[in-house]
Design a protein around this nucleic acid. Structure first.
Length: 711
DNA sequence: GAGCACTGC
């Protein structure tokens, strides 16, 4: 009996507690919302949105703009006509976490009134009114619904980051807005002046709606409200681009961060970083340290040096723990940076610029910033990506120092002189100015924008970059001689892949090896599959040997995928799905394979299998006919072929560039006469990665417009 | 025998 009573008692308490917690949590959320800087200007902001079709909102970190503004707009009736509010983010995690938070604030389950959509994951429903998504996803939606007609408001968040998706989206939205306000005036088919997408949209509607839908041609659209949100001080660029759109500022909430510069220029940045870390550790109050470094190698050597110097300190001063974080680090190791340090210990986080925006680590009071970053640039003429260490921009330096002021007042040590800071560029070059544009050009063409060179970008990409991508799209058969999208090009645009890979799938369906090519393309689309930690180089090499194919990296990747899939399917017969997934991760670890990359490849694979089936392509297998598959690789990747030179280097056939096979390739030693490859990256040398052995005569046979029999 | 920051469809 007593135990019974106790049981009841405890259950009651538990219920009361739950209820009490719930109420207090709700109240706490209400309180937090009211205390946000943005809450004070709710009415004014709503008025501004009502009065301006396009509004620029500059909000510093901590203002609450991302979570609150959509809720305000919903509350004040911006969804009343059935339209929904869409908010784009450059990163997936941001879309997910913000949506979760907003659903909680609204007290609704995620996926109903509030939801999110990212690639592979759509947590929205018919009732969704506030939809967070990635900017790339909204671009994809535009291909299916050129007017983006279900949205009454679109908010482009983090616009200052100027990702390539954001830039393309801004251009698109500007035109969609024009086209929608035109159609509302009922002039959809008469006014063919300045807006090329407006024009293109009208033509598309004309073509698509032949016949019974003709009466819908002048379908009335609601005007589109556009909000551009940026954290940068400088709203002028956005305002000018949108015809002098009004810009409003919202206060942020950050703790002050003291900035320190060096008195003289530093020659050895690693040494300077080490000295600074130990100065902080020995002289400053509690708080963790975040150090920005350029790459894995630098991080690993700084970590080693810290441990060496710690050993020279007295016992009582050794309470310092290091945590590396960079993107190719397996997730479980990345997660360690979030563990609170044991009492009395100080954490030093050695990070790449993953910690600038993508990962927010609590507890940071000190930032060490050498002012350098490894940046990717693209040479459109040679088709070469380069990874070079360059100085950060002012905006980047500001972003880095801000990481010290999230939990309290902080300090930032810039390892350069103040005069040097003044010389830094204001902001980082937008991505659209430094990457391959063939995918962007293909997508714009699929949206009906044929004249890409004169498209109204917020910042025009280099003309040669556009011309070169048009040329490669022409060679792939995606655009015709008169620069129009071909039927093949239209098919390619439906696939969420690099255009070369989309074309490879189409060719493979003709060769009868689409099943294999789907796997190759999925594996080629992800970050490196193999993981080789420095301390276990030998073991990881042996693991790779069991998958290696003498015919090249493509077949090796195919072997890995098949082995993983076979392992997974066998597991699924005896275990639950989750257990099988877990075992697969273990299998990856044992085989020195990055399970995050493999999971990504498996997701892409299932997505593109659905895509090609919808396109009506037949998924047939060439079974073990690797010769056929390699011929298909030659037919697909003929733009990237190279011939061996007498000295063992390779000469890229189309550009004449001299390159080496990357040491990570299975063909690094074999050095076949003729190869195709997928990536050309310049670091210390020019390297080609993902390489397969082919026969030069196949190129002559399969790409005769570019290759002839050699004398 | 080198070593790739980050994000996205």
């Amino acid at each position: 009996m007593p135990s019974m009573a106790a049981n009841n008692f405890s259950r009651n308490t538990h219920q009361n507690q739950t209820k009490g917690d719930f109420v207090s949590r709700k109240q706490k959320i209400e309180q937090q919302r009211k205390n946000l800087p943005i809450a004070a200007v709710e009415r004014r902001l709503v008025e501004e949105v009502r009065n301006n079709d396009t509004l620029i909102i500059v909000g510093e970190t901590g203002s609450g703009k991302t979570t609150q503004i959509p809720q305000y707009l919903y509350k004040w009736g911006f969804c009343r006509d059935g339209g929904i509010i869409g908010i784009t983010q450059p990163r997936r995690v941001a879309a997910i976490t913000v949506a979760k938070r907003v659903a909680e604030e609204c007290g609704v389950p995620l996926g109903q009134k509030v939801g999110y959509a990212i690639r592979f994951e759509d947590v929205t429903s018919g009732q969704t009114k506030i939809k967070y998504m990635t900017d790339g996803l909204l671009l994809r939606e535009a291909l299916l619904d050129p007017y983006l007609s279900k949205y009454s408001v679109i908010i482009v968040d983090e616009a200052h980051e100027r990702t390539i998706h954001t830039d393309v989206l801004l251009g698109l939205l500007k035109n969609v807005q024009k086209a929608r306000s035109k159609s509302i005036n009922g002039v959809v088919n008469t006014d063919h002046n300045n807006s090329n997408i407006g024009h293109a949209l009208e033509e598309r509607i004309d073509n698509q709606n032949d016949g019974i839908l003709k009466s819908c041609q002048v379908k009335k659209h609601n005007p589109l409200k556009l909000i551009i949100m940026s954290a940068s001080m400088d709203a002028r660029v956005f305002s000018e681009y949108f015809g002098g759109a009004k810009a409003v500022h919202v206060q942020g909430r950050q703790f002050p961060v003291d900035i320190f510069y060096t008195h003289k220029p530093e020659t050895d940045c690693i040494d300077a970083a080490l000295i600074t870390i130990f100065q902080i550790h020995l002289e400053e109050g509690p708080g963790d340290v975040l150090v920005f470094l350029t790459g894995q190698e630098e991080i690993e050597s700084v970590e080693r040096l810290i441990h060496e110097r710690l050993r020279q300190l007295p016992e009582c001063s050794r309470k310092l723990l290091t945590f590396p974080i960079f993107s190719s680090l397996p997730s479980e190791k990345q997660m360690r940076v979030f563990m609170p340090s044991p009492a009395g210990y100080r954490k030093v986080i050695l990070a790449t610029n993953i910690a600038e925006t993508s990962v927010t680590i609590p507890g940071i009071r000190y930032v060490v910033d050498p002012g350098l970053v490894k940046a990717r640039t693209y040479d459109p003429k040679m088709g070469v990506d380069s990874l070079i260490i360059v100085t950060t921009s002012k905006a980047q330096a500001l972003q880095r120092s801000g990481r010290a002021g999230r939990d309290g007042p902080g300090k930032c040590y810039r390892l350069y002189q103040e005069s040097f800071f003044e010389k830094l560029t204001d902001s980082t070059l937008p991505e659209i100015k430094r990457c391959d544009l063939s995918n962007v050009v293909l997508q714009l063409k699929a949206l009906g924008i044929d004249d890409v060179i004169n498209f109204d970008f917020i910042e025009k990409p280099d003309r040669t970059a556009v011309v070169n991508s048009l040329w490669s799209l022409y060679l792939l058969g995606a655009v015709t001689e008169d620069n129009k999208l071909s039927d093949v090009g239209r098919q390619m645009a439906r696939l969420p892949l690099d255009p070369v890979y989309s074309k490879a799938l189409i060719i493979a369906s003709q060769f009868g090896c689409l099943k294999e090519m789907l796997i190759c393309v999925a594996m080629l689309s992800v970050e490196s599959i193999f993981y080789a930690p420095r301390e276990k180089l030998e073991e990881s090499r042996n693991a790779l040997k069991s998958f290696a194919s003498p015919e090249g990296d493509h077949l090796t990747l195919l072997n890995v995928y098949r082995a993983a899939d076979e392992f997974f399917q066998k597991n699924k017969m005896v275990h639950s799905e989750e257990k099988a997934e877990k075992n697969l991760r273990k299998w990856c670890k044992d085989n020195y394979i990055n399970s995050r990359s493999l999971k990504h490849a498996r997701d892409i694979h299932s997505q593109i299998v659905r895509n090609v089936e919808q396109m009506g392509l037949r998924v047939t297998s060439c079974e073990d006919d690797t010769l056929l598959l390699r011929r298909c690789l030659a037919a697909s990747f003929f733009l990237k072929a190279a011939m061996k030179q007498p000295d063992g280097a390779y000469r890229v056939t189309l550009s004449g560039l001299i390159v080496q096979i990357h040491p990570s390739s299975v063909l690094f030693r074999a050095k076949p006469e003729c190869i195709v490859f997928n990536e050309l990256v310049h670091t210390n040398h020019s390297y080609v990665r993902n390489v397969s052995r082919i026969d030069y005569l196949w190129l002559v046979e399969l790409a005769p417009h570019l290759y002839a029999v050699q004398d």
